[in-house]
Computed example of a mutant assay.
Amino acid sequence: MKVIYHNHKKILFLVLLAIGLPILCHGQQDSEYTQYMYNTTTINPAYAGNRGVLSFNSLYRSQWVGLNGAPKSLAFSVNSPVGERGVGLGLSIIHDEIGPSTESNVTVDFSYTISLSRNTELSFGLKGGMNLLNVDFRKLDIRDPSEQVFSQNIENRFSPNVGLGAYLHFDDRWYVGLSSPNILSTDHYDDSISSTASEVAHFYLIAGYILEINRELKFKPAILTKAVKGAPLAFDASANFLFNDRFIIGLSYRLDASISALAGFQINDRLMLGYAYDYDTSELGNYNSGSHDFFLRFEFTKRVRNSINPRFF
């Protein structure tokens, strides 16, 4: 019996695995966040240092609440421009849980930015690190525990991580980025239990535009497209409004998956909090009560008296 195990969005896999059916499952693996635009370095290393300050970011996502074994993800990143002009460094840590599996990802990001014109800059990024995968089959309700595939857990299965990215932006008006946070395809095969854990490359395209309606109101439409072999193309479209450089509210649509409400509050020139709620529009929505994103960003910005002027991206 052969089982291919993917660690994200695999509720179908867990059901089939639990009853011991021989099945081949293909699907998306990378963590999925509605507020991805506030933790960009996790998907594009070229963004490291682009905000021009030392920036700490954290995101927590609880997906498909109420569904047993549903995904939970925690992401933390820090990035900053350093020393030589145009150089940025970052560190990203991601921890995912779904069903009987946990995966930890630790990567270091490097970026270099060149000026194409007075207001246009192009950044190139490199990401490198490691993944550790654990699967505890004892957490499954197995019909036939004697199946050899369940006889041995997967413990700290190591795989390397190498990613690339490019990020182009014009002043604070628009941006576009293309990246693959892990270009390596890795198969973890174990003869003793006849099982495989597979990781495949994901490719991301992001873009956004800032429209200043007036001094108090800015509008930002944005898109994210994700492609991975063996899964349908994923597409997110969002529209956010920034009021008085403090309060953000918006909506997001994920193709054939969910509709989301987003909100954020710039408490001061250093601290920002955010939240998003996803309403599942797929058939799986009949079995869960939605998904939640929580976001926090802290930055060491230069203080300007009586002024808060955060970047919208």
Rank of each mutant, 00 (worst) to 15 (best):
A257S: 13
K9M: 05
Q152S: 10
G125N: 14
S111L: 05
I223T: 09
A257L: 14
S307N: 13
L140H: 12
A166M: 14
S185P: 00
F124T: 01
E212F: 13
G165V: 05
Y175R: 04
L217E: 01
P232A: 10
S198V: 05
N153G: 07
K10S: 00
G88F: 08
A239I: 01
G49R: 02
V65W: 11
L122N: 07
S92M: 13
P221A: 03
W174S: 00
L59C: 09
V78N: 13
D278M: 05
L164N: 03
V149K: 07
G165Q: 01
I223G: 01
F219A: 05
S151F: 11
L205P: 00
I267C: 07
T113C: 01
E84C: 11
N119S: 13
N156D: 08
G230D: 04
L211I: 13
V200S: 05
D109L: 04
F265G: 00
I19Y: 14
H95N: 13
S258Y: 10
Y287L: 12
Y36Q: 10
P45T: 02
Y253D: 13
R254A: 03
F150K: 15
F158W: 14
W64G: 01
D269K: 04
F265C: 02
S73Q: 12
R138Q: 15
D96C: 15
Y112H: 12
E121V: 09
R157F: 15
L59S: 02
I93S: 07
N68E: 15
D171H: 03
W64F: 14
Y277V: 08
P100T: 07
N156T: 08
N161T: 14
T225S: 10
H6T: 04
T41L: 02
P22I: 08
L122F: 08
F158Y: 07
F295R: 12
I210P: 00
S185Q: 10
Q63S: 13
I193D: 08
F294C: 14
I249F: 07
F235N: 00
I308H: 10
S115T: 05
H188S: 06
G125E: 03
W174M: 00
V162H: 09
H6K: 12
I43Y: 10
E97R: 12
I267F: 09
L122M: 04
S115I: 13
I223H: 04
P145L: 05
Y279W: 11
N288Y: 02
A222M: 04
A70W: 09
L14W: 11
I223C: 03
S146G: 08
N286K: 05
F294Q: 14
F295Y: 12
T34G: 08
G90N: 03
G69F: 06
P181I: 04
T42H: 10
D293A: 09
S92D: 03
G27L: 06
A201T: 08
A239F: 00
I4Y: 12
I93F: 08
Y112G: 08
L14C: 11
I267E: 01
Q28C: 01
G177Y: 01
